[in-house]
Design a protein around this nucleic acid. Structure first.
Lengths: 337, 337
DNA sequence: GCTTCCAGTGGGAGCGCTCCCAATGCACTC
DNA sequence: GAGTGCATTGGGAGCGCTCCCACTGGAAGC
């Protein structure tokens, strides 16, 4: 059955010739389109098998104006952001949903100047059928580019200040409120917040949730202690907090990585968790189960976030008009608070 | 400067017309090719700016037979493998190196039947300029497909039994040997190994390293206690080990995730680490720093693995002939052994 | 028996780019 | 002044596919 290896990929014309049909019929047979007799359809299938034919994606893309790929764009400071388990989980979800729609996943990092430039070009060209944008900062020029993009764009998490038409987000405010309320329900009053970057909507929203809970309890919210979602920044923020407000009894960290850092600082400082200082995180990353003590944290459905973004994008690519989505969050109580 | 938004992307022909040159000259100017006068080059640049022209990647791909993308293929059981910090770090390295060469990263998961089919088709078509293959199992049919692929293929870690021409691997045997020697140097003799999947070369090689070290010390190596590189499997393997050989004093776990699982089982069983049972891992994932106690482990340069795979692929795409690479590993001593 | 209809068919015109090649013009040599 | 060389130019033929459209013939409707 297998022919000797051809030096060149066979083309659809050769398949058609071998099957004794026209190129049009071969094309239709290949795409399961109607108007092809059973006999010819089978002849084409046979020729395809004999020749080892595989359609050329570039040619198809040019003719159909569809690339068969979707881009996941992550903005960040450095490439290691992909190593963040949060994004890794988003990728898992997006990859699965894209596979269902037979789209390939292009991973784009808008970190360096070069990276941002490439992303902008991708968005402005027709290098993909659609794009998912995540972790945009305030006033990020990419927001502009996205508006003018030559393809549908879905946002993961809302950008600061503007609300795009299509996005998937999680209930950051509600999650942060629940976390803070949990701390307060233990009778603590001196509760602080280690926030994520305040130039991201997630960072702001989680602080708002903390603030709302404090105000609702008749307490003065403390000013945000800003980190950047990394463990290191969490450790540093906790250290500052301990220096500024030695009497702190509870800490809401707006990300598990930062919570892990905070835990480390607390241990070094000789404070017991949760006896001296209670800690609640946000994310429910797998690390939160193996910290010492295991971290009480706000669960957010990260994989679902990626999956829903991809599904929304697929709908858009197919000409539908999906509606924006906000995914629920809930508290997972372990031992740190 | 900005014109009103055109409903259709401008083409190179329109740029050429506006610049008052031929399509050929416009093309050359765009690609920084020689044989274009300064004046015309500038005229083209101006027209590009005015029209907001961006070249169509599909058309370019068809004409040049280059897609401008490289695929990273990960084989696995389920999509969550992308969430494994190991692969996340590989992605970081590969992404950075690919960006330097102006190639896009396509992430492909060969887990489901559908996923494997899509990967096979990608490899056989000209849907990318090259591919990086990771985590192949013994007798994986993808190995076959890769041999006949219509593009250069670089392996990440060697497949079982065959040694491809181009691969990047880490010194698994050496690392495992060092880990085991470290355990033995503490005077322990009842040292066991929790292995990774033995249908992967990494799993086998690491067991070989353990066995070599045991034999060199005049000890009988214990049979491999097989896991699948997940935390859960490590916990289960440790439980079996404790049941079968209650006197075990040291454990080499062929992956940090499994080591974390082992630690958990040991804690539950009331064994102190390292006093009762010493544990050494493999990978040096970030989790190894926050376990209790911090994990002594074999460091492997994961990001470099991804980076070097990508660099090797770029070299191949550019028609060069790079040589296979084996990256060094070294022991990082923390507290678990 | 004669329209009507429609599944089936293949020719051909793109899709937007690259690149080969022949043609042009101009400086420079002998 | 004819000849040589070279940078520059644009025409045109693809790259491999999809899809519109005109054409065929046999089944169905009257």
């Amino acid at each position: 059955m297998a022919e000797d290896a051809p030096r060149r990929q066979p083309t659809l014309d050769e398949v058609a010739e071998r099957a004794g049909v026209s190129r049009s019929v071969a094309s239709r047979a290949l795409n399961n389109a109607p108007h092809v007799s059973r006999a010819k359809r089978e002849a084409v299938e046979r020729a395809v098998r004999q020749l080892g034919y595989v359609p050329n994606p570039s040619a198809r893309a040019l003719a159909t104006r569809q690339t068969g790929a979707a881009a996941l764009v992550v903005c960040g400071e450095d490439p290691s952001i992909f190593a963040d388990p949060f994004f890794a989980q988003v990728i898992v979800g997006a990859s699965a949903a894209l596979e269902e729609a037979d789209l390939h996943l292009m991973l784009c990092l808008a970190a360096s100047d070069r990276g941002r430039k490439r992303v902008a070009e991708l968005l402005r060209s027709r290098g993909a059928d659609g794009a998912m944008l995540m972790a945009l900062r305030e006033d990020d020029p990419l927001t502009r580019v996205a508006e003018k993009a030559q393809m549908p764009v879905v946002f993961g998490g809302r950008p600061v200040r503007t609300t795009p038409r299509w996005y998937v987000d999680v209930d950051n405010v509600g999650g942060a409120r629940k976390a803070t309320e949990h701390l307060l329900s233990r009778g603590l009053t001196r509760v602080a917040a280690i926030c994520g970057r305040l130039d991201t909507e997630a960072g702001r929203a989680r602080y708002r949730g903390y603030r709302d809970a404090m105000l609702a309890a008749g307490l003065d919210p403390l000013p945000p202690q800003e980190g950047d979602f990394t463990e290191h920044s969490g450790a540093a923020a906790m250290a500052t907090l301990l220096a500024d407000r030695p009497g702190v009894e509870g800490v809401f960290a707006a990300g598990d990585n930062m919570a892990v850092g905070a835990l480390r600082t607390l241990r070094k400082a000789g404070r017991r968790v949760p006896a001296d200082v209670a800690v609640v995180g946000f994310d429910d990353l797998s690390v939160s189960r193996i910290t010492d003590p295991p971290l009480t944290t706000v669960h957010q459905p990260i994989e679902a976030l990626g999956r829903e973004m991809a599904r929304m994008l697929v709908a858009l690519v197919n000409g539908q008009d999906p509606t924006a989505l906000i995914l629920p969050t809930h508290l997972v109580v372990r031992s740190s608070a």
